[in-house]
């Protein structure tokens, strides 16, 4: 489903503070797999996730996606490979919105608005009918046992509740791929284990899950299809 070939990402290229975050990484992630990227801070995990999730473009190398939903590609070509390495931002955004769900380290919820509004956020610009995605958001909140908090402002939630809101938000556009960056960094062990249970549930439901973490609870997950160790922008083990 996701193919990376010799992908590099260099920040501040040509300047004195040039920094190579990712160095010629090649990787294939199959549909429905649970892939875990482990490694210390600065090893390139987050950069790799952001490139896979269409948040940026690689400095060199190719990233190809297969079987993704887009409005700019005819349905007949949906099953074919799409090279996203040099797509304009507008197309990358659409791919990101329709195919990827993100769970961030800090959860990245928007303060001041309700739980329900936070969950619906990725769906607002999609052009879908408001009532349709609102009812989907309510179902998700119900599934995660926080429907009673739907009108509560997110800053009033506990860490565990925030995490569930972040997961519900990642699922609102029914993505094929779920990307989580250090999702347990701010959780205690009990909540981290609960999180992994939810994640493995997604994998069993056929979703592709990619997690970056240096938490043993995460990379020790027995149901993981692959654990890739990264260091200094390169893959150390788990290469495909």
């Amino acid at each position: 489903m996701i193919d990376l070939f010799e992908v590099s990402r260099i920040f501040n290229a040509g300047k004195p503070n040039q920094f190579t975050a990712l160095d010629r990484v090649s990787l294939t992630i199959n549909r429905g797999e649970l892939t875990i990227l482990k490694g210390p801070s600065g090893s390139g995990k987050t950069t790799l996730l952001s490139l896979i999730g269409c948040m940026g473009r690689p400095t060199s190398g190719r990233i190809r996606l297969n079987g993704i939903k887009t409005s700019f590609m005819p349905a007949a070509e949906a099953s074919q490979e799409l090279d996203i390495s040099s797509l304009p931002e507008r197309f990358l955004t659409e791919i990101r919105r329709n195919n990827f769900g993100f769970i961030f380290q800090q959860f990245n919820l928007v303060r001041g608005i309700s739980v329900l509004e936070n969950v619906m956020l990725p769906a607002y610009p999609g052009g879908e009918k408001f009532d349709t995605f609102r009812s989907r958001a309510l179902t998700l909140l119900d599934n995660f046992g926080i429907s009673q908090k739907s009108a509560t402002r997110v800053e009033l939630l506990s860490g565990g509740e925030m995490q569930r809101v972040a997961i519900a938000r990642a699922l609102i556009n029914q993505p094929e791929v779920i990307i989580a960056d250090e999702p347990t960094a701010h959780l205690d062990s009990k909540l981290s284990i609960e999180f992994m249970k939810l994640i493995t549930g997604f994998r069993q439901a056929g979703k592709t899950v990619i997690i970056a973490s240096h938490d043993p609870i995460v990379y020790g997950e027995p149901l993981a299809d692959r654990v890739i160790e990264m260091r200094d922008g390169q893959m150390v083990t788990g290469q495909s």
Binding site: R90, T93, R96, F100, F104, N108, L109, V110, P125, R169
Partner: peptide, 15 residues
């Protein structure tokens, strides 16, 4: 920060 969050979850600059 909010602008960054919106972009990361699929909002375009135009949105």
């Amino acid at each position: 920060r909010e602008t960054g969050i919106l972009k990361s979850i699929g909002w375009e600059t135009g949105d």
